[in-house]
């Protein structure tokens, strides 16, 4: 079975060593997803697989056959950007921009995860639905590093989208 990326099917790679990240960038030619550390530590390669965010650098492409992958290109376009993309621009939530696609994929998934009631390390009461406090957002974004240190504005961008949706 092929891998669907942003709705388009791509045949599995011949070499099983190919990471999902390299597959997205090289085979599909979608270079929005970035390679930072390539070891699951920085989050620049974050994409959604079946709607769930993962580090694409730590996933072998062949293990994702039949899956639906969404990258930054699948979230929005220049002509029709997603709310999270617009919020990142409005809040100046990046400087160099290298980590930004991963940050936006993560932030998009984060809102879904909170809506689904998934707890985090910052959730005080495991028996209650988590609230989207700043502490919660920071904890849930800790897998995405930003060497420019745009964290405060990334937080503001996520908060803006969450408040618009509320």
């Amino acid at each position: 079975m092929p891998i669907a990326i942003n709705g388009e099917d791509y045949p599995l790679p011949a070499d099983p060593r190919t990471s999902l990240l390299d597959f997205i960038r090289r085979e599909a030619g979608l270079t929005g997803t970035k390679k930072g550390c390539d070891h699951g530590q920085c989050g620049a390669c974050t994409v959604l697989v079946g709607g769930v965010r993962i580090n694409s650098c730590l996933s072998l492409a062949v293990t994702n056959d039949g899956e639906e992958v969404t990258t930054i290109e699948g979230l929005g376009t220049l002509a029709a950007p997603a709310a999270m993309q617009m919020a990142f621009v409005a809040q100046d939530a990046f400087q160099c921009g290298y980590c930004t696609p991963g940050q936006i994929c993560s932030a998009t998934a984060l809102l879904e995860e909170v809506a689904a009631g998934w707890p985090s390390d910052a959730t005080a009461d495991l028996g209650a639905a988590p609230e989207l406090t700043d502490e919660e957002i920071r904890e849930r974004m800790s897998g995405n590093l930003c060497r420019c240190g745009a964290y405060a504005n990334i937080l503001a961008a996520i908060r803006e989208v969450a408040e618009e949706a509320a």
Binding site: G43, R53, N55, D121, L126, R140, S142, G143
Partner: peptide, 23 residues
Amino acid sequence: VRADYPVLARAILAGASQQLRNR
């Protein structure tokens, strides 16, 4: 798990990142 074994939920949530825990 959250209701009856909260120590397990807490320990898992204290580790890694959301992306890693998802896989």
